[in-house]
Design a protein around this nucleic acid. Structure first.
Lengths: 202, 202
DNA sequence: GGACGGTAACTTACCCTAGGGTCACTTTAC
DNA sequence: GTAAAGTGACCCTAGGGTAAGTTACCGTCC
């Protein structure tokens, strides 16, 4: 570290502890949803108590937002980079999947935070999640447009539907992956390549 | 009715009220998840109060189970009928979709009850939902097996993955449909047929 | 080098509300 | 007048959130 140690006293520096809590929170929120997750359980996972969690993040919403921003930021960044590189329309899905699998190999629940149906319908969380979804959807719509127009389909409502189904496909692939911790990002990508090649000739 | 009117007094016969409550419960549970849904809100939707709901269903779990059994029963029955009819492997997905859209045109949230991540991980609900999922997965695996083997893919793990992705596709189609109440079952089926034809040549 | 503040890290013990669940009671159609 | 349909008012717990104090590491002053 180039920075002189900020200070520090007991236990572990705040920054490090916050990172642990965000990881634990992401897993709990991803597994049980915002409504189902318990703050004391998240603290317990890390080996601290609830008040520390509140001191650092202020509220359940604050913690969720921290988890959401980390997940959403990494996700949109990874997808943007991949999409910017360009390529054949029917190669993009696999490239995006590969990027997602690589980015989230050790953080598989993160994806779910953007699509958690149990967050309160109004408020900061819903707004932030909707914003990340909107950005991802824009990429999905772009990819779907390229793919469908290359096949002679131009109905914009069809395109929206395909874009949304695509995000659902990612969702279920990640759920499947969560249940198979031994499958790493490379194996997952290879599997998807094999299946898409066989099923669609892509 | 062949039965003489059971009796009946004030308001509405129990059977009818229960049906209303199951419909309202399905929508609330589907929208907010088990953890996020509120019993008083479900009662309010129907225009009665919470104690009546408890008198009829005993508990939140009891109501959820009633909703789940109705949804799961109709779903497995519809899919079983469609699958039993047989056909070309690459025609089955569309046939199954058509059956699901027709069955749940006026009950679009029902599907979500089988895959609600906020139900407690152990207990009657989780067991019942897992059982319905298992039955549906069996159909999905059957369809995926036929489809993949017809393409020269035989890896059983690939088949499982495809089967799970398929359920995810249904999930996201239904989510998309929920947001577009004006699209009826026929239009939805036609859209899926057009897209699958264009994208995959099916 | 050891006493001593100072401060961040952390905890115990508590409050408070939302919401699941219940009891005793009232209404109304037969 | 009986019994099902329905309600107002309540209890209780889980869990979000907080106040006040305690612990341990650091620098520093003699």
């Amino acid at each position: 570290m180039t920075e002189s140690r900020p200070v520090g006293t007991k236990g572990m520096p705040r920054e490090e502890r916050e990172a642990q809590l965000v990881v634990a929170g992401t897993e709990e929120f991803g597994r049980s949803g915002y409504a189902g997750a318990s703050m004391v359980e998240i603290a317990r996972r890390v080996g601290v108590t609830k008040p520390l969690l509140y001191q650092y993040f202020g509220s359940k919403d604050g913690l969720y937002l921290a988890c959401l921003h980390r997940a959403g930021g990494r996700l949109t960044e990874g997808v943007a980079t991949t999409m910017a590189a360009g390529g054949e329309p029917d190669q993009m899905p696999l490239k995006v999947l590969a990027a997602i699998f690589t980015t989230f190999d050790h953080d598989r629940y993160a994806w779910r935070l953007l699509r958690d149906p149990t967050v309160p319908a109004t408020g900061d969380i819903a707004a932030a999640a909707a914003d990340y979804r909107r950005r991802l959807d824009a990429f999905a719509v772009l990819g779907a447009t390229q793919l469908l127009t290359s096949r002679g389909l131009a109905d914009p409502v069809d395109i929206e539907a395909v874009a949304q189904v695509w995000t659902g496909v990612v969702d279920s692939l990640i759920s499947w992956w969560i249940d198979r911790p031994d499958e790493d990002a490379g194996a997952m990508t290879a599997r998807c390549a094999r299946i898409m090649g066989g099923l669609f000739g892509w």
